[in-house]
């Protein structure tokens, strides 16, 4: 498998009024295309911080980050925005849907910032993404009219619509009851089987078990990195309900 990203000696400190809070203390991590990887660890261990750096929402303090073979150091804000617009997507614990907009409008949103998809094609992309999370019949609903699980599936559709290289999901089931959480995880699993690379951040064992590989973080360092099962995406033997 081709390498998607590679971290070497990554450190991250926050500086608030001269006070340094060191969060990540030297992370080495390689992720390949097509992986479904869970980053686990207790609250405050630096999982979200790592995900924000991997997703170009934040920058490392020191260390190198290669994405698709390219060093990302020295990229300016506009270049990072362009990567976020086209190559990576996020699913957040709090959904972050526009409440007074419809499902379709929410899913269309990232295409506003995508230079490669023509305005005339946007609706097709959005309907396809909505269909792949099973919400075609809700496309014209306002997001405030949906259940939590449905909202998170809309957020996944929004992440999918730009056909990114990599989808991040930060505690995607954190605000959901276990049944809808399960549904959301099944959607992510299906996406991975369809070829999407997914990086899941969670502190729940049961959620992490959907991934093929689990990276444990503790106090800003990788504690363990284990493959839980053989790569399933190539195998036709695993069937979804």
């Amino acid at each position: 498998m081709a390498s998607l990203l590679s971290l070497k000696g990554l450190h991250k400190s926050y500086f608030n009024e001269e006070i340094e809070t060191a969060v990540l203390h030297g992370i080495d991590l390689d992720i390949e295309k097509g992986e479904f990887i869970a980053i686990m660890g207790p609250s405050g261990s630096g999982k979200s911080t790592l995900m924000h750096i991997l997703g170009f929402l934040d920058r490392p303090t020191t260390g190198t980050y290669h994405f698709l073979g390219e060093d990302t150091a020295g990229k300016n804000d506009d270049e990072l925005a362009a990567i976020r617009a086209t190559k990576v997507s996020f699913v957040f614990q709090a959904f972050h849907l526009l409440p007074r907009a419809t499902v379709l409008e929410n899913v269309l949103l990232p295409l506003l910032y995508h230079p490669g998809i023509a305005p005339a094609d946007r609706e097709n992309y959005a309907q396809k993404a909505i269909a792949s999370v099973g919400l075609s019949d809700r496309a014209t609903f306002f997001s405030s009219q949906l259940s939590g699980g449905q909202k998170q599936r809309v957020a996944i559709a929004r992440a999918l619509v730009t056909e990114p290289e990599l989808i991040f999901a930060d505690e995607p089931t954190g605000n959901l009851d276990s049944a809808s959480g399960l549904q959301v995880m099944e959607v992510l699993e299906k996406l991975n089987q369809a070829g999407h690379t997914i990086i899941l951040v969670t502190h729940e064992r049961t959620t992490a078990e959907f991934a093929d590989r689990i990276v444990h973080i503790k106090d800003g360092l990788i504690e363990s990195d284990t493959r839980t099962h053989e790569r399933r995406r190539a195998g036709a033997d695993v069937k979804l309900k």
Binding site: G55, L57, D77, D78, A81, A82, R84, A85, T86, S89, F90, H96, L98, L109, P110, L112, Y113, H114, R158, T162
Partner: peptide, 9 residues
């Protein structure tokens, strides 16, 4: 959110 999905400043 808009920044996360790729909006430039």
């Amino acid at each position: 959110l808009r920044k996360a999905i790729g909006a430039r400043p």
